[in-house]
Design a protein around this nucleic acid. Structure first.
Lengths: 358, 358
DNA sequence: GCTTCGGAAAGACACGTTTCTGCATGGTGA
DNA sequence: TCACCATGCAGAAACGTGTCTTTCCGAAGC
C-alpha cells in the first residue's frame, strides 16, 4: 500500500499536505510557520491546501522537535491531601483565573497538577515551566523541578532557600501592621488573631507581624490557630477565641471563611458587630459586602499576582530579559466596611456592589 | 564526538540509561514500563540505574509514539469574552476541582483552554479528550473537536444536535418545579424569576420550566432577565424585579450572586425576608448559610457532575465499555434555610456550618 | 562564455520513545 | 540426538515535525 492512501485513517499529516500541494515537506513547514524564503504565491497556496485538508500539526511532534510544549504547570502545595483547594478560598480561584488568562494571551496553556510528586502524572506532561502557589519550605516538588531545569515561579516568597526563578508576593507584614493600626484607630483595645498552624509563608509572616505589633504597642497576644484546610476547625477556633477570659474586642481572621465564622460566634455570644467586636478578615469574596453587617476585608489582589507570576515565568522561558523584576511585591487593599468602624457612617443602606475592577 | 558524551547537556535520555546499565534501549523501555519478559534482576537493575541518572522519559516522545498524551481539555464556552468564569460562580470552581481530582486519580491531567477557537492554543496541545461546560447550540469549538475525532463530554445537555460522546446534567425542569412547589407551600402567591438572557441549556430549561409551572397553577409570569456575565446587571435586575407594580412575594434567582442582590434590593424597599419576600437562589456557596437571613439555595451538585463527566470521558478514550451510562442525570439538592420558610423555626441562632460532605 | 550569486525548493536527519520482529541459548520431550 | 519451545534480550522501524544542508536554475558580472 502506498503511503498517501494508507494515511487515510487518522488526521492528515504534513506529508499529505505536501503531496496535495505538489511541494515538499520543508516548503509546507516553512509556509505555515512563516519561516524560510518563499514567494507569497507558494505560501498562500500551501495554506489554502492545508486548510482544505483540515490539517493540524501534531503538537507532540512539534514539542519533541522544538523542545517547547507551550504548557505551564499550575500547582498549590499546601493545605492537606486534596490535590488543590481552588474552591476553598476565592483567592485561588481568582489567581488561577488571572494566570490562565495571562498565559493564554501569550500562547500558553495551564495544566493543573497535584501537589504530591506522583511521578506518573508529573512526568507524563512536557512542561515549559511551572507556577507554584504557596510552596512549603524545601518543597520536594519544586526542588525536583528545578533540578530538571524547569523554570519555577512561585506565588509567595519561597522559604528554605528554594532556588526558584522568581516570585511574586504581597508585603504581608506591612498589610497586617496597617490593618491592626486601622483597628486600633477605630477604638480597639485588645486585638485577637485567628490564624493557621501550617508552615506556609503567608501564615508565618502574618502571624509574626501580629506578634511584632503586639510587642510594639504593649499588648498581650491573643490568638487561636487551627488547621486551615479543615472547614469546621475555623468555626471552632473562632468560638474558642471569643470564649477566652481575655476576650478581644477586635479580631483579624487570616482565612477566607473566618469572617462568617466570627460573625456566627459573635452572634452566639450576643456580641454586636461593630459595637462590641470589630472584625476584619482576609478574603476575596464579594459576599462580605452583603453580610449583616458588611465585613471589612483585606484583599491580596490575586488577579495582579496571577498575571505577574505568569509574565515572569514566560519571560524566563523565552529567555527574553525584559526590564521586569524577577521578584515583585504587590500592594494589598484594605476594603473598609461597617464591621471595623465604630462610628459607622452608614449602617442601613448599602449600595449595590460595583464592578470589582482591577 | 561520541553520542553518550555529547548528550551531557540536557536531561539523560533512554540511551544513556541503556549504556549505563549495559543493556539495550528495548530492555530499558520494557523494564520501566513493566512490559516484555525480563527477569526481576534485570528489571530492578535498570530501574536503579535510571533512578541514579535521574532519568525522566520524554512525555513528548511518548505521546508522539503512542498517540496518547494523558491530557484532557477543560473549557467553558458561555458567558462573555473572558476565557472562563471560574471565579464568577462557585459552581465552576467546584466542578473544575472535582474534575481535576477525578482525572488525576486515573492518571490524566486537565488543561484549561479558552472558549474561543483561537487555533494557536488549541492546536498546540495534544488532547486525548475534552470536557466542555455548558456548550452553546452548535458550538464551533465542539464541532471542530469531534470532527477531528477527539471525544467530547459536556456538562449540560448539548443543544443543536451536537454530536458529543456523552453528557451529564441535572434535571433542571424537575428541580425548578420542585423548588416552586416548595415556595408555594411556604405561602407564596406570586413567584418571580431572575434569569439570564443567554442561550445555554441551563438558563433555557430553567426558564421554560418556570413558565410551564406558571401556566399550570394559573399565575402570570413575573421575571427579569439580564446578561449573566455582567456582575452589575444582576443587582440592577433584582431591583427592577422588586420595583414592578406586580411585585412578587417570592423570587427564585438562577445565578449565584442573585441571593445577595435580592437581599440588598429587599432591604432598599424595606421588605423583610422571609416575612414579606421568600427567597431562593441557585448557588454552591456556603456563605449563604451565614447571610441575614440565611438563604435557601439549590445546589446542582457540581462535584458529582465533574467526577461523572471525567469518568465518562476517560472510559471513552480508553475504549473500555463499562456499564456506566453515557448520559447521566444528577439529582439536585434544595438546601432549605430561613429565607424560604414563613414560619421560621429558628431565626436567631444558626449553628456553625458543617462539612459540605457530598 | 564561464563563473558567481541568490532565490526557491527538495533531501535527509534528528528529536526520544515504543514496539514489532528476530536472534541466540539452554532446557525438555520424543 | 534432534526438533521445539520458552526465555532473555537486541536491532531497527516507525511516530510527525523542524531545520540544516544541498541542489537546481536563471540571471547578472567579468
Amino acid at each position: 500500500m502506498s503511503r498517501s492512501t494508507g494515511r487515510r485513517l487518522g488526521r492528515a499529516g504534513i506529508r499529505d499536505v505536501a503531496a496535495a500541494a505538489g511541494v515538499s515537506i520543508t516548503t509546507v513547514s516553512d509556509a505555515l510557520n512563516g519561516k524560510g524564503r518563499l514567494p507569497d504565491a507558494t505560501r498562500s497556496h500551501v495554506r489554502e491546501v492545508a486548510d482544505r485538508l483540515g490539517y493540524r500539526p501534531s503538537a507532540a511532534a512539534r514539542t519533541l522537535r522544538t523542545g517547547k510544549s507551550g504548557l505551564l504547570g499550575l500547582t498549590v502545595t499546601t493545605y492537606g491531601d486534596e490535590p488543590f483547594t481552588f474552591t476553598e478560598f476565592a483567592y485561588f480561584a481568582e489567581m488561577a483565573r488571572a494566570a490562565t488568562s495571562a498565559a493564554l494571551a501569550r500562547g500558553y496553556a495551564l495544566v493543573i497538577l497535584p501537589a504530591t510528586s506522583r511521578h506518573d502524572v508529573w512526568s507524563n506532561v512536557a512542561l515549559d515551566g511551572t507556577v507554584v502557589i504557596d510552596p512549603a519550605d524545601g518543597d520536594p516538588v519544586v526542588t525536583e523541578l528545578v533540578r530538571h531545569g524547569i523554570p519555577v515561579v512561585s506565588d509567595g516568597r519561597p522559604g528554605g532557600a528554594l532556588p526558584v526563578t522568581g516570585w511574586v508576593d504581597n508585603d504581608h507584614e506591612a498589610a497586617v501592621l496597617g490593618l491592626l493600626d486601622h483597628l486600633a484607630d477605630a477604638g480597639a483595645r485588645r486585638i485577637g488573631l485567628l490564624t493557621g498552624n501550617t508552615t506556609d509563608t503567608y501564615t508565618r509572616l502574618s502571624t509574626t507581624a501580629y506578634l511584632h505589633w503586639c510587642e510594639r504597642v504593649g499588648q498581650d497576644p491573643v490568638y487561636e490557630s487551627y488547621p486551615a484546610h479543615d472547614p469546621c476547625a475555623g468555626a471552632v477556633a473562632a468560638d474558642r477565641l471569643l470564649a477566652r477570659p481575655d476576650r478581644p474586642d477586635a479580631v483579624y481572621g487570616l482565612f477566607d471563611p473566618n469572617g462568617t465564622d466570627l460573625l456566627a460566634a459573635a452572634r452566639r455570644y450576643g456580641l454586636r458587630v461593630p459595637e462590641d467586636l470589630l472584625l476584619v478578615c482576609c478574603s476575596e469574596s464579594t459576599l462580605y459586602a452583603a453580610t449583616e453587617p458588611p465585613v471589612t476585608t483585606l484583599s491580596l489582589k490575586p488577579r495582579r499576582i496571577g498575571t505577574a507570576v505568569v509574565q515572569i515565568l514566560i519571560d524566563a522561558i523565552e529567555g527574553l530579559d525584559t526590564g521586569r523584576p524577577i521578584e515583585q511585591v504587590i500592594p494589598t487593599d484594605l476594603i473598609v466596611r461597617a464591621s471595623s468602624q465604630r462610628r459607622s457612617p452608614r449602617t442601613t443602606v448599602s449600595p449595590p456592589r460595583g464592578p470589582t475592577g482591577d
